[in-house]
C-alpha cells in the first residue's frame, strides 16, 4: 500500500518538483555565465558592469528563494491532500493513517533530499565551473579534479565527519517535515472557515520555528552538560564534536518519530473536514 501511496504522492508533486529541479541548474548556469563575463571579459563600461552585477545579485537571490519554495509547496500539498476537498477521497482510502502520513513524509524527504543534491551540484559544479576559469570547459575540469582530490584525500576521520554531516542534513530534513506536517494538522484543527487554508499553512511555519528553537535550546543544554562532564583531555582530542553530532542526530531522529506518531494520533482523532 505504501508503494501505491508514494506513487500518487509523487504524481501530485511532480508538477512543481520537476520544474524546480530543472530551474536550479539553469539558474546556476546563467549566474555562472554572468560572473564569467564580469571576471574574464576585459575592461567594460561602468553601467554595463553595474547591470551585470545586479543581474548576478538577482540570480543569487532567486537561488536562495528557490530553497524556500519546495517546503512551502510540499506543505500546501500536504494540506490540500488531507484537509481540502481532496481529503474526502484521501481519508476514505482503506489505508492506515500512519501509512498515509508516512508516505507523505517519505515523499517530502526524497523530494527535498534530491533538491538539495541538485542545488549542491548546481552551485558547486555548474556555477563554479563556468565562473572560475577563462575557459568554462577548463572550469568544469578544474571542479571535477577538485572533487576527485577531495575524495582521494579523505582520511578515516574526515570521512566519518563527512558521513555524519550528510546524515545530519538528512535527519534535519525529516525533522523539519515532521514539524511542518504536525503544524498543518494542528492548524487545520484550530482554524475554521475561510482562514483555514492560510491559517494552517502559516501556523505550521510558526510551529516549526517554535519547536526548532526548543530543540536547539535542549541540545545546547545537553551539550553544555556533557562538556561539563568531559575531561579537558577529551575536549582537546576533538572527540566531543563527533560525539555531540551523533547525540544530536539520535535525538532528532527520536523527536521526529515522536512528532510523527503525535501527528498520526491527531489526524485519527481530530479530523476537521468542513
Amino acid at each position: 500500500m505504501l508503494k501505491k501511496l508514494l506513487k500518487y504522492d509523487f504524481l501530485s508533486i511532480r508538477r512543481f518538483l520537476i520544474p524546480l529541479l530543472l530551474f536550479t541548474p539553469v539558474l546556476s548556469g546563467i549566474g555562472g555565465f554572468l560572473f564569467w563575463i564580469t571576471t574574464f571579459m576585459g575592461p567594460k563600461q561602468i553601467l554595463f558592469s553595474l547591470g551585470l552585477s545586479s543581474m548576478i545579485g538577482f540570480v543569487i537571490l532567486a537561488l536562495v528563494l528557490s530553497v524556500a519554495v519546495l517546503p512551502i509547496m510540499l506543505v500546501i500539498r500536504y494540506y490540500s491532500g488531507l484537509y481540502s476537498d481532496s481529503g474526502y477521497l484521501t481519508l476514505m482510502l482503506p489505508v492506515k493513517r500512519r501509512t498515509m502520513i508516512f508516505s507523505k513524509l517519505l515523499c517530502a524527504f526524497l523530494a527535498e533530499a534530491s533538491y538539495l543534491v541538485v542545488l549542491f551540484f548546481s552551485v558547486v559544479f555548474v556555477f563554479g565551473g563556468i565562473a572560475n576559469a577563462g575557459n568554462p570547459f577548463r572550469g568544469y575540469a578544474m571542479v571535477l579534479v577538485d572533487i576527485m582530490n577531495f575524495i582521494s584525500d579523505l582520511s578515516g576521520q574526515t570521512a566519518l565527519i563527512l558521513i555524519e554531516i550528510i546524515l545530519y542534513v538528512l535527519v534535519w530534513i525529516v525533522l523539519q517535515f515532521s514539524i511542518l506536517y504536525l503544524g498543518v494538522t494542528l492548524g487545520a484543527a484550530i482554524f475554521q472557515g475561510k482562514g483555514k487554508v492560510w491559517g494552517s499553512v502559516l501556523f505550521c511555519f510558526v510551529t516549526n520555528s517554535a519547536v526548532s528553537t526548543f530543540i536547539s535550546l535542549v541540545e545546547l543544554a545537553i551539550s553544555g552538560g556533557f562538556a561539563g562532564l568531559m575531561s579537558m583531555q577529551a575536549l582537546e582530542n576533538g572527540l566531543p564534536m563527533q560525539f555531540f553530532l551523533l547525540i544530536e542526530i539520535l535525538m532528532r531522529i527520536g523527536i521526529s518519530v515522536g512528532l510523527y506518531f503525535f501527528n498520526v494520533r491527531l489526524t485519527e482523532k481530530k479530523l476537521n473536514l468542513g
Binding site: M1, K4, K7, Y8, L11, S12, R15, S80, G81, D85, S86, G87, Y88, L89, T90, M92, L93, P94, V95
Partner: peptide
Amino acid sequence: VAYLPDRISIPRWMTTEQAISYFADFFA
C-alpha cells in the same frame, strides 16, 4: 463504504484515467 461527498474530492490534477487507476489501486 463508498462515500460520495457533496463536493468534488478527486484532485484537479488527475486525469480521468489516473482517477480510475487510483480507485482500482486502493479499492479491492
